[in-house]
């Protein structure tokens, strides 16, 4: 019979306790609260009623699908703009004899360390028609007529904010891809050179297949990050995610529902139902990655 090795318990206990009490338990408690409603100040179990409201009541379902659709658009912009730019910058930075590489790297990473509040307001001011920095700069290159109050228009506000978010976070894919590129052994590239594969061809045929696993991880990180995003939209457009909910994503929708806004009272149970939806979406995304992409991806032993 084993005696209990108390030191193991002591080593594990603080982390497991805090993690369980503050993360795992509230997570499942939130999923549970989604099945309750408050009727006459009493919490009663109502089963799937909240979800029926969320998907069945046109007022709610319209807001939900709007937020979900916007969230997907937000994610697509990140995948199409942020990650390719990140890969391009990383490919250039990893060039063996590039001078000032460390300087560029540090400078390009600066936006990533700034808070959403700074980023949101800074871009709001720059794009503001009142201040006129963006229109004046466009004027200077003869494109003055292109300027629009992008953040104020329903058609362009979400894309603009997504691009601001791309601007902020491009440093992360850049760094991760940069690290992956550096870990490719020189012999492989030299072997390629002997076979006449150089320059751009070397990138597409040798390096890109080798960094695919990193691109996969970046994609899933982007997905999770985008589907619980909130701060940038809140800082730039407020909880109402204007104009006319054009920039509403799941995070802002949940916040509004949970805390209430204007005349509508906050409803923690409906908030939980939306959180449950977010949880399901993130879970599906992560599972797709783990079981669909990661296991099929060819990993090259380096």
């Amino acid at each position: 019979m084993h005696r209990i090795r108390w030191h193991i318990v002591v080593f594990l206990a603080p982390a497991v306790l805090v993690y369980t009490a503050v993360m795992i338990f509230p997570l499942f408690n939130t999923l549970r609260l989604a099945l309750y409603s408050e009727i006459e100040n009493v919490r009663v179990f109502t089963g799937l009623a909240n979800f029926r409201t969320l998907f069945g009541d046109p007022l709610w379902s319209e807001a939900f699908w709007n937020a979900l659709g916007n969230n997907f658009w937000f994610f697509i912009i990140h995948m199409l703009v942020q990650n390719p730019i990140g890969i391009l910058l990383a490919a250039i930075l990893s060039h063996p004899r590039l001078r000032f590489a460390a300087l560029y790297r540090s400078a390009i990473f600066v936006p990533t360390i700034l808070s959403f509040v700074i980023v949101g307001f800074a871009w709001k001011l720059i794009l503001s028609p009142i201040w006129g920095i963006a229109p004046n700069m466009l004027d200077a290159v003869g494109l003055g007529s292109w300027f629009q109050p992008w953040l104020g228009r329903e058609g362009s506000a979400l894309t603009t904010l997504a691009l601001v978010s791309v601007w902020q976070f491009v440093g992360i894919p850049m760094m991760l891809i940069y690290a992956a590129l550096l870990s490719i052994p020189e012999e492989i590239l030299e072997a390629g050179e002997i076979d006449g594969i150089t320059g751009a061809a070397a990138f597409w045929k040798l390096k890109l297949p080798l960094i695919l696993p990193s691109i996969g991880i970046i994609s899933v990180l982007t997905f999770v990050g985008n589907f619980n995003a909130f701060d940038l939209i809140y800082a730039a457009q407020g909880a109402l995610a204007g104009p006319d909910f054009a920039t509403d994503i799941l995070g802002t929708f949940m916040y509004r529902t949970f805390f209430g806004f204007q005349l509508q009272l906050g409803d923690p149970h409906m908030g939980s139902a939306i959180a449950t939806g977010m949880f399901a979406i993130i879970l599906i995304g992560v599972c797709l990655y783990l079981f669909g992409i990661q296991t099929r991806m060819r990993r090259y032993e380096l």
Binding site: V16, I24, P26, G251
Partner: peptide, 29 residues
């Protein structure tokens, strides 16, 4: 020890699941 792998997996769950999902219950607590 028994349950080592399981404990490791349990603790790793939170890498991918954002804590914000549990906000309603965290505030209540």
């Amino acid at each position: 020890f028994k349950g080592n792998t399981l404990m490791g997996l349990y603790l790793a769950l939170g890498i991918m699941i954002p804590i914000r999902i549990g906000t309603v219950a965290i505030l209540e607590m």
